[in-house]
Amino acid sequence: MADKKLLLIFRNPPFSDSSNKDTLDIALACSAFDIPVSLLFLHDAVLQLIKGQQSQALQQKNLINTFKALAMYDIDQLFLLESDLRRFALSTADLTVNCQAISESEMATLIRQFDTVINL
């Protein structure tokens, strides 16, 4: 089997539909199969990384703990757009995991580096 690099793109806000959890489950499963996985958070998806979220009031599972555990699965390449941070007046220090902020043109270059891209 050929080596494949996988990029998973998150686009949806937290606590909306199941796509964020479903994408995260793909990340964990593929990592267990030794597929190198990187994550890209676009637009509203950035909001799920903000520190101090309390999902108990919504009676929903919080994905934050899973995001924090990603490093144990060797998933440490996390990207987001500088323009999204500006839009929400955030900095990477506001986020619960280490992310690299990139420009739109760097994103285009990034995506081309992957063999498989999944964007649910």
Binding site: M1, A2, K4, L6, D25, I26, L28, A29, C30, A32, F33, I35, T116, I118, N119, L120
Partner: peptide, 17 residues
Amino acid sequence: GLGQLADAILSSDRLLT
């Protein structure tokens, strides 16, 4: 399980969503 998706990624030239 999702392992079948991981296998599909590894075994295919293209995965289309």
